[in-house]
Design a protein around this nucleic acid. Structure first.
Lengths: 278, 278
DNA sequence: AAAATTATGAAAAAATTTTTCACTTATATT
DNA sequence: AATATAAGTGAAAAATTTTTTCATAATTTT
């Protein structure tokens, strides 16, 4: 699966009837588009030329030619179907995992609110103390976030134990920040800790999957991920990568904004960690 | 060298002055032709549009467009990381993070050995006990792997403390598996734990970035990631996502291979976790 | 059900590509 | 050396392709 085809699939839902026809024709006739002019493709896909131009632009290209060039560049790569089966080799599974990750990131890009992201970054930068809370599957993401903020010079810590989470939340004060990570947004312990954090005046930020969920009630800022977990969604694998991508973006933004302070802090950390390596 | 460029070189002698200029420009600017219209290329190569059409036809194409498509198909896309700046908004940073992740996954796909991946999956499936070790930045990945394997019904645990890592490694026996995660592959403590694990007969698998590093000496199976960390590479953000993608692939492969056992195990876990949610 | 929004295709406009043709340059012949 | 012939080239015209515009149709919201 290549990037353009993947993008077509990701954006399929948001397309109108005519554009969907174009999308389907292209997906069902891989490679055949290359020698076709826009008029010919319009004939094949049964729509107007204008629709094809709009379709191309929705995918992020300036026009039909650019789409065609992009498809030409990627046609060589073999197309794999998105669903995993028991017959897949480990490597085939790996390729599908990558596809899913990519889909998930693209979807998240759509539901992530730029203003909220900015506000979250601002809140973190202005924060006195930061706690990151996550349980189970989200624990590793919380640890990652905590680790990163700590290394960037913030007073940050991740708690992956429900008791510790509550204790830490209760010790927050106005100006502090609590970041709650939960794919479902309905993990009791995390929600209660968020509520407590807010009651103590902290700004609460949550990272959760798009849709209604109780955690949003207790969050000042909601950062959405979007991952359609088709198979074994129970582990919410892709949402975790989407969560990480948000954490990374916040981290980078902060680093770039506060260059003097954080950069020297990062450099200090790095040089002091050198002794731990061969 | 691709077919079209080769053809251009072969036919170079039979060309006129103006066509030679086109040929040279194309040869000297590989890939740059793709977004150019015939007028723009004529300007660059300092000739008329007609010459370019004739040039294309001499190469055996019906016209300029066909030549461009052919060149596009053979130009391998260069994977480039986008550069972030202090002026980028949080959301722009997010987009670049996503792009970097994608680059990193594509690169990893190239360096990851399918056979080794398969062997790693086999070793894990046959394992008695599994330990996952990672420090600092790789700790969250280790935790994620441990959590996932545990939830899939394996006797697995992640250790993110150098003492515990060594203790756990010393208690392994033949048939057990130690998974070491280190981007640099030169984290002293992780390497020593891997060495100990191996001395006790465990199969050692490491996930590390492509290149020479000490950890590979003590690993039976080496799974490479590849991420060019251009800016603030110290935190190896993207390599971590690549590591996770490998973990995910192993996990899925295992789940699909051992459906009866692991699936029921996953279902059991899920139903027992329901009480933790609203 | 009415209003607003969005999607669509036909046609016009713009851009691109191809062809034509007159002119130049190079080569071969006398 | 002069001339004829052939090949190569660019300007402009013609054809084609692509993009934009706009009126209408379909859809969603109120």
């Amino acid at each position: 699966m290549n990037k353009v085809t993947l993008k077509i699939k990701v954006l399929l839902d948001e397309m109108g009837k005519a554009e969907k026809k174009v999308a389907h024709w292209i997906l069902e006739h891989p490679g055949e588009i290359l020698p076709l002019s826009i008029v010919e493709l319009a004939e094949k896909a049964i729509c107007s030329e204008a629709t094809i131009v709009r379709f191309s632009q929705h995918l992020g290209f300036t026009g039909y030619q650019e789409l065609k060039i992009a498809l030409a560049r990627e046609t060589k790569s073999t197309i794999v179907n998105a669903h995993m089966t028991a017959e897949d080799s480990a490597f085939e599974i790996y390729e599908k995992v990558c596809n899913d990750i990519y889909c998930s990131l693209e979807r998240t890009k759509k539901v992530l609110d730029a203003d909220v992201l900015q506000s979250a970054a601002d809140a973190i930068m202005a924060a006195g103390k930061i706690i990151v809370i996550g349980l189970g599957n989200s624990a590793s993401v919380a640890i990652d976030a905590g680790h990163k903020l700590l290394r960037a010079g913030y007073t940050a810590f991740a708690y992956t134990d429900n008791h510790m989470q509550m204790i830490a939340a209760a010790h927050l004060s106005p100006g502090d920040v609590a970041i709650g990570i939960s794919h479902s947004g309905s993990s009791k312990d995390v929600i209660e800790a968020m509520q407590t954090a807010r009651e103590h005046g902290a700004t609460t930020i949550c990272i959760t999957n798009k849709g209604k969920s109780p955690i949003q009630k207790h969050s000042d800022l909601v950062l959405y991920t979007s991952s359609e977990e088709t198979q074994y969604n129970i582990l919410a694998l892709n949402s975790r990568i989407a969560q990480l991508s948000i954490i990374d973006a916040l981290y980078f933004h902060i680093v770039y904004q506060q260059s003097p302070k954080t950069l020297s802090s990062i450099e200090d950390t790095e040089s002091s960690l050198k002794t731990k390596k061969y």
